[in-house]
């Protein structure tokens, strides 16, 4: 399918002149039996927040593992800042900061101790390290908790230590796996504000995996994955625009037959998803009156809405985000 290539990052920065920060080329991965990632290619540009959106089992975690040098891909290539993730892992590791979905901070150590060890792993020591620890704790709002053991901090605070840990060496690329897991709405908002600040003020390139539509909306650009394949790539706005017009959903007693007859009468694709008749139309509000008049008494309810990212997903895969055949497998 043709992949759109439209400018998406803050207008003040001319990014197209720069080479991509991450280049994924025909990347594929096969666990014993299952093809978890299948011929995926895309670029991530400097200083953008790039989202990998997909349901469980879509391949985004596999892609994350390959990018973070934790696993070798079985096919294709991933390059970060010009270094091959498979062949030059240490060069890649210097450039990336990684925030895992599960906590990686040591709960028995204090927040500052965690950062000190992390700094040592990246060759920081002495005064530089001390300054960096203070700076990072200040930036995530935990300066006053530096000496507290991580196990005594709240879940949200622990995630902040996690983030500070990933940023200790000022990486050019920050990789985050499902970063808002376990965060309340307030903490989630703070996280996104912070990621945007990193992007705008330090030109950090941020890659976020997520299965949450509302989180994907924050990203500058998105790659939507389904069953290991790249099904959409672009800015959230552009992807939704491609739907064309509005999304109309109808409840009916006999959705299959209604869908068939609507398609016959009005033309264009008309699907049944989750027992509801669903179609995409320009000038949706006008279509509503037409369809209700055409099939009196057959439609129990009808709704018109602007397309969401979930609609993009349905449009590209033919099924809902959460009811894919692969759901339930890791």
């Amino acid at each position: 399918m043709p992949l759109p290539d439209v400018e998406s990052v803050p207008a003040s920065q001319d990014v197209r002149a720069e080479s991509p920060v991450i280049r994924i080329e025909r990347l594929g991965h096969r666990y014993d039996q299952r093809q978890a990632l299948d011929d995926v290619s895309f670029d991530v540009r400097p200083a953008e927040i790039f989202g990998l959106l997909g349901p469980n089992g879509s391949g985004k975690t596999t892609l994350f593992r390959i990018l973070s040098t934790l696993m070798l891909a079985t096919e294709g290539r991933a390059t970060i800042m010009g270094h091959d993730a498979a062949r030059e892992p240490n060069q890649v590791r210097r450039e990336i900061g990684v925030v895992f979905q599960a906590a990686s901070v040591d709960a028995k150590l204090t927040a500052a101790e965690n950062l000190r060890h992390q700094g040592h792993l990246y060759g920081l020591s002495g005064r530089t390290l001390k300054r960096r620890i203070a700076e990072m704790l200040g930036r995530v709002g935990l300066a006053d908790r530096a000496r507290d053991r991580v196990e005594t901090l709240s879940g949200g605070q622990q995630r902040r230590v996690e983030l500070a840990k990933g940023l200790m060496h000022h990486p050019a690329v920050l990789l985050l796996d499902e970063p808002s897991t376990g965060l309340d709405p307030g903490a989630r908002r703070d996280l996104w504000l912070y990621l945007k600040m990193l992007r705008d003020e330090e030109r950090v390139t941020v890659v976020v995996t997520t299965h949450l539509m509302e989180e994907a909306e924050h990203c500058d650009r998105l790659a939507i994955l389904n069953e290991g394949k790249l099904v959409a790539l672009g800015t959230p706005a552009e992807l939704k625009r491609e739907i064309g017009g509005e999304v109309i959903v109808m409840e009916a007693r006999e959705p299959q037959s209604l869908a068939r007859r609507i398609a016959e009468r009005f033309g264009g694709p008309c699907n049944v998803i989750d027992g509801k008749v669903r179609l995409e139309r320009e000038h949706g509000h006008r279509f509503v009156t037409d369809v209700v008049e055409a099939f009196p008494g057959e439609i129990d309810s009808i709704s018109v809405s602007k397309p969401t990212l979930e609609d993009v997903f349905i449009d590209r895969t033919g099924h809902r985000f959460w009811t894919g055949p692969e759901s339930g497998t890791p």
Binding site: S68, T69, L70, N90, Q91, R93, R94, I96, V98, F100, A102, A103, S104, V105, D106, A107, Q118, L121, Y122, K165
Partner: peptide, 13 residues
């Protein structure tokens, strides 16, 4: 299990 190992494994050491 606690995830600490992961963060060491992605460090350039």
């Amino acid at each position: 299990k606690e995830g600490f190992l992961l963060s060491v494994l992605v460090a350039p050491i």
